[in-house]
Design a protein around this nucleic acid. Structure first.
Length: 866
RNA sequence: GCCCCUGUGGCGGAAUUGGUAGACGCGCUGGAUUCAAAAUCCAGUUCUUUCGGGAGUGGGAGUUCGAUUCUCCCCGGGGGCACCA
């Protein structure tokens, strides 16, 4: 027989058109089918799709197509997260407009995604830079304002004095702006904030109600929210001459049991007490300046030495007025956390100990191991975090108590004194959403000299971003666009100015899932649609969004609920974080980083295709443009077809782990598509079994094939449902091998023909989620004139799955010695008898006495002998 | 420093509740087909062996009739958080 080749270049566009013509993937609301919303994190339109996109969307598509075949009404939309810095950077570098650049990229990437054959409902597509989208976002902002979820307040930011803009912490490198290289200043600016911290406890608690999220992500969010339970209390302060001062010093601690070990207090450089003291002391004001010059980045903080300056003030010990505790300003105390002030107990905190040793402060141990009450502390603090066998010492009325009893006692006494209370602090800060950027959603606020900050009238929304901006000067182009900026006050009508800041682009992606439910609606979100579709049943994306995007979305969904848009709190019921696509890197002394397609292997060396220069094959890391270890999906789809690319992205590696792209792997996936097609094509040449009833008799071959067929069908279904695509692919390989083998041994009987035809049909179905074009081609080749994408998932014939006999291993003292095949229903005692009669068992038991025989039906026989 | 994940052939990785370790794929070896090659098909492929076996899931101990799986200690790799009081 001739072996036919599968031509993906011809087949794929053909089936894509057939799906589109039939409207196969358009989601409907008025059905009796249960709904299923599958969503992959939408892409940023950077220019071209990359392999990470292929992997992400291939996974989502498997689920969408499978669920559709299982009878769900599926919503599987696509959009573009299209505001943000890269468009402005491109504008500056290439002298283009962000808008044009962005929409061109979207056009390119849409075409590329469509070539993947994704089962997307394209009628719902939108970009966050569409005025129809960001205008609704402005409405939501006004709603949030009405609901008290928005606040304007001053905050300290990293300011780039050359680019005239705020920088995120990540954009500050060694204290300098990442673009301008200018020394970054700390500046106080008025910014808009969303009050996410009001939801700290709720966002924390609700994590426990998200069993469909990876434990890892929940832990990361938990740490990020950072709940800590402790005591907040005030010290009385006195000057050098022991005169009581008016102000008090409020501190937060989780270790109030160590109060008698306090040997200093430390406040942040920006603390009011520190500011006041600096007015009369150059030493202190110099110290404050030094602290201010330090970046707010974590690197800067970490590398700085613990330093402080005495403020000339003492705190009175709350339980022993004779103890004076010196108050320092210190660079390691953060104004943003707790009260911006701490008491230091050097004996039981390493950082406090380092500080105390540096400034010659007292070190008094107050918690001791029960069996060594006279121990001393030199360089290492004694930290009793195990809650072990310890006891309070040197602590007046606390002596002899356990740590937890001491904490309770102190809390009680402070409450009685009325100078302290138990308190919970969170690490989570409010979300600063103002950005001094052009390419974002304008904040719908107007600054009026008389009325102050006035929200834009709803009837005047959307506040439309000007189409063009000039980037010839640093700073925000909106700020220089007078025509756009000048407006009138919605309240008094006098001339006024628009807010020229735009929203953080994380806002754009915090509600897009809800907009997909009613993408054309006049309101931002239509309640009935949102309540029908939400929460997203399966959300898929990269782990890099574990905290910010996913936490913001959880908060935003609650905000939408509060504003009355929907009745859902958690936007994503199930979350899956997929791994990255990696590739080997190549580097040449002259060529620098080299693209994989230019690296040629000869023996165990790599050389440059054009220059012949020897290349060093480097580490296998995430595909990135800078390291040039990228493979363009468009080339792969052109060469092998979308199905092959999809198949490869789903094979081998578990989807949550990284996958390495290799040329050999792509080749392998391509070979498999050809092999599968060949087998199905050959089967299609046999007498057609379409619509024929099940024959009465099957050969052993045919019976065996049918069993494997239905076992595979069942396994592939459950593997897809648990997102173990690599396993379902292994099963499909196995079954295809079996089908080919049985085809070669076909005896020409009706039974054999039927089993082969049935196998090929089911194979067409089970590959459809992964390789939809090839599936259609196979389905068509088998004489069907319907679309397999519209066909229901085949039903498993459970009677074929039940095995009558079962193979069991026979062990002697835990070592495998033999194997027996017995009827599934055989009694334990009979199995034991059969096992003991085996030659190999007898031989190995020679000279030993059987002590015990363990029989686990269907699994194992273990003979214990000595 | 704290928290989490992870470690299985040459490689990616399989292994319901503890029950035949290495499914499936890649690679490699041999064979068939071919004038030859590509493609395809078949067989083999953890290591070791005196061919009876023996060893083996990062290392060490433990629980168990039985451990890749559970417990403890140690080592390697990855990630998150971090002057958080």
């Amino acid at each position: 027989m001739t072996s036919e080749r599968y031509n993906s270049r011809q087949a794929e566009p053909k089936w894509q058109k057939a799906w589109e013509d039939a409207g196969v993937f358009i989601a409907r609301e008025n059905t009796n089918e249960p709904k299923y919303f599958v969503l992959e994190m939408f892409p940023y339109p950077s220019g071209r799709i990359h392999m990470g996109h292929v992997r992400n969307y291939a996974m989502g598509d498997v689920i969408a197509r499978y669920k559709r075949a299982k009878g769900f009404n599926v919503l599987h939309p696509m959009g573009w997260d299209s505001f943000g810095m890269p468009a402005e950077n491109a504008a500056m570098e290439n002298n283009v407009q962000p808008k044009g650049w962005t929409y061109e990229n979207i056009d390119t990437m849409r075409t590329q995604l469509k070539s993947m054959g994704l089962s997307i409902d394209w009628t719902r597509e939108f970009a966050t830079c569409d005025v129809e989208y960001y205008g609704k976002q402005q409405e939501i902002f006004l709603d949030f304002l009405d609901q008290g979820l928005v606040e304007r307040r001053k905050s300290v930011v990293n300011w780039d004095p050359v680019d005239n803009t705020v920088l995120a912490n990540e954009q500050v490198i060694d204290g300098k702006g990442w673009r301008s290289g200018a020394a970054v200043e700390k500046r106080e600016l008025s910014q808009w904030f969303l009050k996410i911290s009001d939801y700290s406890q709720e966002l924390l608690d609700a994590l426990d109600e998200l069993p469909g999220w990876p434990e890892k992500v929940r832990v990361m969010q938990k740490n990020w929210i950072g709940r800590s339970q402790g005591l907040q209390f005030s010290f009385e302060l006195e000057d050098e001459n022991a005169n009581l001062l008016d102000e008090k010093l409020t501190v937060f601690t989780t270790r109030h049991d160590t109060i008698f070990g306090a040997s200093f207090c430390a406040v942040a450089a920006d603390h009011p007490i520190s500011i006041k003291a600096s007015q009369n002391s150059t030493e202190i004001s110099d110290f404050r300046k030094e602290c201010a010059s330090l970046g707010t980045s974590e690197e800067a903080i970490e590398t700085a030495e613990k330093e402080g300056v005495f403020l000339g003030i003492y705190a009175r010990h709350p339980f022993d007025q004779s103890i004076r505790i010196p108050v320092y300003a210190a660079n390691f105390v953060l104004m943003g956390y707790g009260e911006g002030a701490v008491f230091g107990c050097p004996a039981h905190d390493q950082r406090d100990l380092d500080f105390a040793n540096k400034y010659g402060l007292k070190v008094t141990p107050v918690v001791a191991p029960s069996d060594d009450l006279n121990f001393t502390i030199t360089d290492t603090a004694f930290i009793d975090n195990a809650g072990g066998n310890t006891v309070m010492i040197n602590s007046a009325f606390l002596d002899g108590m356990s740590v937890s009893a001491a904490k309770k006692e102190i809390a009680k006494r402070f409450e009685e004194l009325g100078t302290g209370e138990q308190k919970i602090n969170y690490r989570l800060r409010d979300w600063g959403i103002s950005r001094q950027r052009y390419w974002g959603c304008p904040i719908p606020i107007i600054h009026c000299d008389d009325c102050g900050l006035v929200p834009e009238k709803r009837s005047a929304l959307p506040v439309i971003l000007p189409d063009e901006a000039s980037f010839d000067l640093p700073g925000n182009p909106l700020d220089r666009n007078d025509e756009w900026k000048q407006t009138s006050c919605p309240k008094c009508g006098k001339s006024a100015q628009r807010e020229t800041d735009t929203f953080d682009t994380f806002i754009d992606s915090s509600w897009y899932y809800a907009r997909f439910c009613s993408p054309k609606a006049d309101k931002p979100v239509e309640a009935d649609k949102a309540n029908y579709w939400l929460p997203v049943d399966q959300y898929i994306g990269g782990i890099e969004h574990a905290i910010l995007h996913l936490l913001y979305s959880r908060f935003f969904c609650r905000g939408l609920e509060k504003a009355g848009y929907l009745d859902v709190k958690e936007p994503f019921a199930n979350l899956f974080t997929q791994g990255m696509v990696t590739h080997m890197t190549f580097k040449g002394e002259n060529a620098g980083w080299v693209l994989p397609e230019l690296a040629i292997k000869s023996g165990d060396k790599w050389t440059h295709k054009d220059t012949g220069e020897e290349l060093e094959a480097g580490s296998i890391i995430k595909m990135s443009k800078s390291k040039k270890n990228v493979v363009d999906p468009e080339h792969i789809i052109e060469e092998y077809g979308a199905d092959t690319a999809r198949w490869y992205m789903l094979s081998d590696s578990p989807p949550d782990r990284d996958i390495e792209w290799t040329a050999a792997g792509a080749e392998g996936a391509w070979k498999f598509t050809q092999k599968l097609w060949r087998t199905v094509h050959l089967i299609s040449q046999l007498p057609s079994q379409k619509d024929k009833s099940v024959p009465n008799e099957f050969s052993e071959n045919a019976e065996g094939l049918r069993k494997i067929c239905h076992q595979t069908l069942k396994a592939v279904g459950s593997d897809i449902e648990s997102l173990r695509f690599n396993r379902s692919i292994a099963r499909i390989h196995e079954f295809t091998n079996e089908l080919t083998a049985k085809l070669n041994n076909c005896d020409g009987s009706d039974g054999d023909h039927f089993a082969l035809f049935e196998g090929a049909s089911i194979l067409s179905h089970i590959i459809a989620p992964m390789m939809p074009h090839l599936a259609e081609e196979c389905w068509n080749q088998l004489g069907n004139d319907t679309l397999v994408s519209l066909e229901p998932w085949p039903t498993v014939d459970e009677s074929l799955i039940v095995e009558n006999s079962v193979t069991m291993a026979v062990q002697i003292n835990g070592k495998r010695r033999a194997e027996i095949s017995v009827p599934k229903t055989m009694e334990k005692s009979d199995i034991e008898k059969v096992a003991l009669e085996l030659d190999n068992v007898k031989r190995n038991l020679a000279g030993l006495k059987v002590r015990k025989v363990i029989v686990v039906p269907g699994r194992i026989v273990n003979i214990v002998a000595n």
